[in-house]
C-alpha cells in the first residue's frame, strides 16, 4: 500500500507523537552527561535532576529574601499582564473590527489607517511607551495591546466581511435592525473566528510580554530568565522555557475547548451533513 494511504492505529499514533519529545530529552541527557564528565561544574547543560531540583525550589520553597514562591509570583504577574493585554485587544477587535467589517462608512474611515498602523513594528514603540507611561505595568500591557490588537482587528473585520451577503439580506427581510443584526447574526458568526484570532495573537503576545519584562520589570517569567542569564543559570532558564511553553499550550487548548463548547455549530461543518 502507498504510504499516503497507511493510517497509523491509535496506539501507534500516540507512540509516534511522543517519539520526538523523548528523542529531544534523551539527546539532551546524553550531551549533558558527556559535558559533565569533562567538567562536573558545567553550567551550560545541567543535568535533568539538577534542573528538576532548581525548579522544585522555585516552585515550592519560599524565596529567602522576599518570602515568595518565585515561580508562582512570576507566573501570576506575567499571566495578569498577558491577560490584560489580550483582553483589551479582544475588546478592540470586537468593537473596531466589527464596525469596520459591517459598516461601510466606518470601513472607509478606518481601514486604510488600520492597515498602515498595523505595519509599525510594535517593539519600536516600546521606548515611546516607556516615556509616556513610565516603566510600570501600563507600558507592558500597552505593548501587548499594540502588538496584537491591529492584526486581531483586521482579521475580525475580515471575518465580518466573509459573512455571506445573502444572510445579511435575509436578516433584513426578517425585519432586523442594525443593532439586532449585530447581536444575533454578526457577533455570533464572528466569535469563533475571534477565538481563533486570539489563539494566533497569543504567539506575538508572549513575545512582547517577555520582551517588555526583560527590558524593564521586577517580576514575571521574562524578568526571571533574563535576570539569571547573568549567572549562566541554565538550570533556571531551561525549566522556565518549558514552563512558559506549557502555559502557552494549555491556554491554546483551553480556548479551543471553549470554542467547541460555545459554538458547536462551527465545529460541525464539514464533518457530517
Amino acid at each position: 500500500m502507498r504510504i499516503i494511504n497507511q493510517k497509523p492505529s491509535r496506539s501507534l499514533a500516540l507512540f509516534l507523537g511522543l517519539l520526538p519529545f523523548v528523542a529531544l530529552v534523551v539527546t539532551y541527557a546524553i550531551a549533558s552527561h558527556y559535558r559533565r564528565l569533562d567538567n562536573p561544574a558545567d553550567k551550560l547543560l545541567p543535568s535533568i535532576e539538577q534542573m528538576m531540583g532548581t525548579f522544585y525550589r522555585y516552585a515550592f520553597v519560599p524565596d529567602r529574601r522576599s518570602g515568595d514562591l518565585l515561580l508562582l509570583t512570576d507566573t501570576i504577574d506575567s499571566l495578569l499582564r498577558l491577560g490584560a493585554g489580550i483582553a483589551i485587544a479582544t475588546l478592540l477587535a470586537l468593537i473596531v473590527g466589527i464596525a469596520i467589517g459591517f459598516i461601510p462608512v466606518v470601513r472607509s474611515a478606518l481601514a486604510p489607517f488600520l492597515a498602515s498602523f498595523s505595519l509599525i513594528p510594535p517593539i519600536t514603540v516600546l521606548p515611546i511607551l516607556f516615556i509616556i507611561f513610565g516603566l510600570g505595568e501600563v507600558s507592558k500591557i500597552a505593548l501587548i495591546v499594540f502588538g496584537t490588537a491591529p492584526i486581531m482587528m483586521r482579521s475580525t473585520a475580515q471575518a465580518v466581511m466573509d459573512i455571506p451577503r445573502e444572510m445579511i439580506i435575509k436578516a433584513e427581510t426578517l425585519g432586523a435592525s442594525v443593532w439586532q443584526m449585530l447581536l444575533r447574526l454578526v457577533v455570533p458568526q464572528t466569535m469563533p473566528k475571534l477565538i481563533s484570532a486570539i489563539r494566533l495573537a497569543l504567539v506575538p503576545g508572549w513575545i512582547f510580554l517577555i520582551s517588555a519584562e526583560a527590558i524593564a520589570s521586577t517580576s514575571g517569567l521574562g524578568y526571571r530568565i533574563f535576570l539569571v542569564r547573568r549567572y549562566l543559570a541554565m538550570d533556571v532558564i531551561l525549566p522556565y522555557v518549558v514552563w512558559i511553553t506549557l502555559l502557552a499550550f494549555l491556554i491554546d487548548r483551553l480556548l479551543l475547548a471553549l470554542s467547541i463548547k460555545i459554538f458547536p455549530w462551527r465545529h460541525l461543518e464539514g464533518e457530517s451533513l
Partner: peptide, 30 residues
C-alpha cells in the same frame, strides 16, 4: 431590503449558528 418582501436563496438561506427552532423564532424575536 425590508420585511415586506421575503427571500429564499439557493445557498446561505438559513443561519448556520442557530438551530432549526432558533431560525424560525428569529423573526418574532426581531
Amino acid at each position: 431590503p425590508t420585511a415586506d418582501r421575503g427571500i429564499v436563496f439557493q445557498k446561505y438561506s438559513v443561519f448556520p449558528h442557530l438551530t432549526v427552532k432558533g431560525n424560525l423564532l428569529l423573526s418574532q424575536e426581531f
